[in-house]
Design a protein around this nucleic acid. Sequence first.
DNA 1: GTTATTGCAAATGATTTGCACAAGG
DNA 2: CCTTGTGCAAATCATTTGCAATAAC
Lengths: 165, 165
Amino acid sequence: MEAEIRQRLDEFIRRKGLRRTTQREQIVSVVFSRDEHFTAEELFERVRKVDSETSRATVYRTLGLLVEADLLRQIDLGENQVTYDPNFLNKPSHNHLVCIDCGKVVEFEDDNVDIQTDSVSRSLGFKTVRQSIKIEANCEQLRLNGRCPNLIATRLTGKRLRKKR
Amino acid sequence: MEAEIRQRLDEFIRRKGLRRTTQREQIVSVVFSRDEHFTAEELFERVRKVDSETSRATVYRTLGLLVEADLLRQIDLGENQVTYDPNFLNKPSHNHLVCIDCGKVVEFEDDNVDIQTDSVSRSLGFKTVRQSIKIEANCEQLRLNGRCPNLIATRLTGKRLRKKR
DNA sequence: GTTATTGCAAATGATTTGCACAAGG
DNA sequence: CCTTGTGCAAATCATTTGCAATAAC
């Protein structure tokens, strides 16, 4: 994975007449070191642990680059900050289900859904380039058993639940 | 339509122990006087024409109320501001296709899509509460004939194309 | 050497909030 | 009256930008 990312990025950098810098290298390796979604601020903090000099501005600028190079995608999870998803290289057509009970985000790929949405596009006279689906849903286990396995899993892994505000 | 909105809003206001104010009445009637999507700022300008005293803060606060009452929905069209959609009362399960060529937004409802996404939810152990789908697509007519009827229609009706930035 | 890139701090822009006054019930 | 709502201006918060210094190529 790493290799393909480097390659794509180098290609992008060459094509655009940009430069390979230490900061970009570091940011990219932090971005793709995990498959979790993140915000710019969260990335900034992670990057700072690797290099305490890197500025917030450079993080934002590099994020813009990665999105432009289509290595990273912005997704809308209903927060006030933009969320970034590093998993589109592995799962080019995945979408997101957000648990209303615990905030957990589940990624899914489903060909039938894609077929249906493509069909909608076509019938409207368009050709789908990309789509984003967000399903907000309740956990059935919680409703039936009063316990949400996702909630528990989420607590255990320490993943962030819903945003404060 | 108007009647049902008033009724729902009154019910919401009563239930929450809120008050009916001139500003709220005016804002609501402006919001539902058209079926176009709008931003808070655009609404503010429209409201100002009716009552030049109304503040931006009240517009924002009322928007929050309407969303909470589920009379209005926030949608993500990839702009930097939140977009509001007043059409969910008429079309409870509609979604959006955005033309990459001209920025036109087309609303669509499709039962098959809903069936597929519900099925995805179920298979993951969830129960869908709501979903939002954004299809980004190219206009086939533009590709085939070099002309985009939507683009033309959009120009004629003077609707806003893509955001500046 | 050029030209792109960085870090910093200041600017921006949308949205929110504290507060004194006004208005609904 | 008593409490909620409003307008105003200031505050927030994420993100962007101008600029002088720094680093790619």
